[in-house]
């Protein structure tokens, strides 16, 4: 049973890593925010498997709802494309 949990943990962490890599490399900031929210979903699965439901409940509301929305508000006040 614990093996299945560890496999789910590994998959969710790797997917979370992929999402965070995409969020960093993406030049369209709005897409980057959405990738970041995907990373939040994956990390919340990891928190659930690591038996931290208290952290999960705060994280899922902040990382996926509030943080994403704050960044979308901020992007709407600046430009959408990242200029290097």
């Amino acid at each position: 049973m614990i093996f299945i949990h560890l496999v789910i943990l590994a998959i969710s962490m790797i997917l979370g890593f992929v999402f965070s890599y995409l969020a960093i490399m993406e030049e369209d900031l709005l897409k980057a925010v959405i990738y970041s929210a995907g990373q939040g979903v994956m990390f919340s699965i990891a928190f659930y498997i690591l038996m931290a439901p208290d952290v999960l409940l705060a994280y899922i509301a902040i990382a996926i709802g509030i943080y994403t929305a704050l960044l979308v508000f901020v992007i709407s006040k600046t430009e959408r494309k990242e200029v290097v």
């Binding site: 439901p53 208290d54 999960l56 409940l57 705060a58 509301a61 902040i62």
Partner: peptide, 16 residues
């Protein structure tokens, strides 16, 4: 599991 901060941040999603 849960508490004031968790519930409050979930509540803040509604006005958003």
């Amino acid at each position: 599991p849960g508490g004031g901060f968790q519930g409050g941040s979930a509540l803040a999603v509604v006005p958003l």
